[in-house]
């Protein structure tokens, strides 16, 4: 199975190609919100360099949030239109699932990527190490299994959800550094802070093999929260 994967949820976007679970190539864009300009030319170039034609791609995998609303939408709209125009499959992969893959090998039993979500909130989710992976099923199963939901919460609300020993990382820690200085939380040399399209491709491969597919007509970004306008209107209506 040939997969083309997009990750545009943060400030460093990327595209990757993978075949039967093995990474073929990956290209990261220059930093900044340039996803709209870079995405399709990068895909075209990688496909050509791999000796494929675009119709060879069986599945378009896309990081579907949470993250930059605009960035995620560009990735999702692109993947939807490609899947529709070619009659191929599509799979949305949560950006935090892909980001968790950046955790170092010695991260311990639990990791929590924390992404700055503005509005005094962070996007986060807690992941536990998958024992099956260590038992030898390397590459066949996910390394990290999500415990609970994808969150968009104030950092104070995240803290009680972090079990002792959790390895935390991500740009969401910068603004709230003091809050997260809890002696039982683990920090290490900071792993890469941007989810990679290669991780999106790898996770999509595992899901696709298990028979999972999204409907291109129905796939929407994971925003995790209403718009600012809806929140303000809602609180006005209550008063």
């Amino acid at each position: 199975m040939r997969i083309a994967a997009f990750e545009t949820s943060g400030t460093l976007g990327s595209v990757a190609l993978a075949q039967d679970g093995a990474l073929v190539s990956e290209r990261a864009f220059e930093k900044g919100l340039v996803h709209g300009r870079e995405l399709l030319p990068s895909l075209r170039d990688l496909v050509a360099a791999a000796g494929w034609v675009i119709g060879d791609v069986d599945l378009f995998a896309v990081s579907c949030g949470p993250g930059s609303y605009t960035g995620v939408r560009v990735g999702v709209a692109t993947a939807k239109a490609l899947a529709w125009a070619l009659g191929k499959g599509i799979l949305g992969v949560p950006s935090l699932d892909a980001l968790a893959e950046n955790a170092p090998a010695d991260a311990g039993e639990r990791v929590c990527p924390v992404v700055d979500a503005r509005w005094q909130q962070v996007y986060a989710a807690v992941y536990r190490r998958n024992p099956a992976r260590d038992a030898g099923a390397s590459g066949e199963v996910r390394r990290w299994l999500r415990d609970g939901e994808l969150l968009a919460v104030r950092p104070e609300e995240l803290l009680p959800r972090l079990p002792p020993g959790t390895f935390i990382f991500g740009d969401g820690l910068d603004r709230y550094a003091a809050l997260f200085e809890r002696p039982d939380l683990r920090r290490g040399p900071e792993p890469p802070r941007h989810a990679r399209a290669s991780a999106v491709a790898a996770l999509a491969w595992l899901d696709a093999r298990a028979g999972r597919r999204d409907d291109p007509f129905r796939l929407v970004p994971l925003y995790l929260r209403p718009t600012e306008a809806e929140v303000k209107f809602g609180s006005k209506a209550k008063n």
Partner: peptide, 16 residues
């Protein structure tokens, strides 16, 4: 943000 979506879809169809 709205323009980007139509343009993304158009480019995707053209490449595909």
């Amino acid at each position: 943000g709205a323009l980007l979506l139509g343009v993304a879809a158009a480019k995707a169809i053209c490449l595909a």
